[in-house]
Amino acid sequence: MAIVDVRILVEGASDVEVVSKALQGLALGSEYNITISSIIPTTNVEIAKSAAAGADLLIIATDADRVGRDLAERLFSELGEMVGHVERMKLPLGHDLEHVDVELVRKELKNTLVRAGLKSLQILPEYMALRNQLLDLKGRYDGLAEEYRKLREEYEALTKTLEELREENTRLKEENEGLKALLESAKNIYRIEEAWKSLFPAEPVPDETYIGKAVEKLGLAGRVIVGQGYIFAEDKGLVDELLRTVYLSLSIREEPGEVPKPPTEEPPRPPKPPEGPGVVEDAEVKPDDIEGLLKGL
């Protein structure tokens, strides 16, 4: 159990001696669990404030005369909010220790401590009510602290998302600017199929890759771009020139020129037979021919 810090304000040094004498023989620590930390002799309010600040119990011990009562009332009103509890104690008139009844002072001191304790008991229900309110507020505080933690995490997550959205927005703005520039130059974009058919309506459209290679071979990179079924060029004439070159290349590849065949040697012809009757090898002789020959003989 904590020790109660009690401080006593008196009017002068002689009162310090009287109170100190009265405290002798009192077992305040064992009986009341208190300690008298200081006895302050002063009538100055500012000094009293400095000396009494933070005390659990402040006893204002002044004479029972009018001056003492006025001083006690002034100190009570000035120091009431600076300490836990303020209690008034009346000292018997006279400042000569030999003529003061110390036992009477001791008894008054004990009565003052009892009164302070009883007054504390009177405020106990209020204290308990305040304690319950404090516990309720602590529970609400803990709940709000947890809610704050969750909101903080959500806030940080939203902040991160916001930054990502800002970056995405910046990227989209740049992309939008590029699209605007592309739209402004849309007149220089031509569909490959339409451009080819306008020149060679009866011919199949060549592969886009082949046209791209032609752009590289002809040194048109940078001036002509081919992709996604479109040709981007400075003007239509350059597109037509490119497609005519492609057409010519394809024609050469598909219809190569005829290569003349080397002459072949003709077999030697047999000599002509001499005029007049002659002998014919392997001639077929018919019976009628033999009969005619015989008649001629």
Rank of each mutant, 00 (worst) to 15 (best):
I3V: 12
V4F: 10
V6S: 08
I8H: 02
L9E: 12
E11V: 07
V18F: 07
A22I: 00
L23H: 02
L23N: 01
G25N: 08
L26W: 04
L26K: 03
A27D: 15
Y32Q: 03
N33R: 14
S37P: 01
S38V: 05
I39E: 09
I40K: 02
P41M: 00
I47N: 15
A48Q: 06
K49S: 11
K49G: 12
A52T: 06
G54Y: 00
G54T: 08
L57H: 04
I59R: 01
A61W: 02
A61H: 01
D63F: 06
A64C: 12
A64E: 10
D65Q: 04
R69N: 10
E73C: 00
F76W: 12
L79Q: 00
G80C: 11
E81G: 04
M82E: 15
V83K: 06
G84R: 07
V86M: 09
M89I: 03
P92G: 12
L93I: 03
G94Y: 00
E98M: 09
D101T: 11
K107I: 12
K107Y: 15
L113T: 07
V114R: 04
S120L: 08
I123N: 10
M128H: 09
L130C: 09
R131K: 14
L135V: 05
D136Q: 14
G139S: 13
L144F: 10
Y148A: 13
Y155K: 10
Y155I: 05
E156R: 09
A157S: 15
K160L: 15
L165Q: 10
R166L: 15
R166Y: 06
E168F: 02
L172A: 12
L172D: 08
E174T: 09
L179W: 13
A181E: 14
S185V: 05
I189K: 07
R191K: 11
R191E: 11
E193N: 08
K197F: 02
K197A: 06
L199V: 02
L199C: 08
L199H: 06
F200E: 09
P201M: 01
P201D: 03
V205M: 00
T209N: 12
I211K: 00
G212S: 15
A214F: 00
E216F: 03
L220Y: 01
L220S: 02
A221Q: 11
G222D: 05
R223L: 10
G227W: 00
Q228R: 15
Q228L: 13
G229K: 09
A233S: 01
V239I: 01
E241K: 01
L242Q: 07
L242W: 03
L243S: 01
R244N: 05
R244W: 00
Y247K: 05
L248G: 03
R253I: 04
R253C: 01
P256A: 01
P260H: 03
P260G: 09
K261P: 06
P263W: 05
R269K: 15
R269C: 10
P270L: 04
P271M: 06
K272M: 09
P274S: 07
E275G: 12
G276M: 09
G276W: 08
P277L: 08
G278K: 07
V279S: 05
E281V: 07
K286R: 14
D288A: 13
D289E: 15
L297H: 11
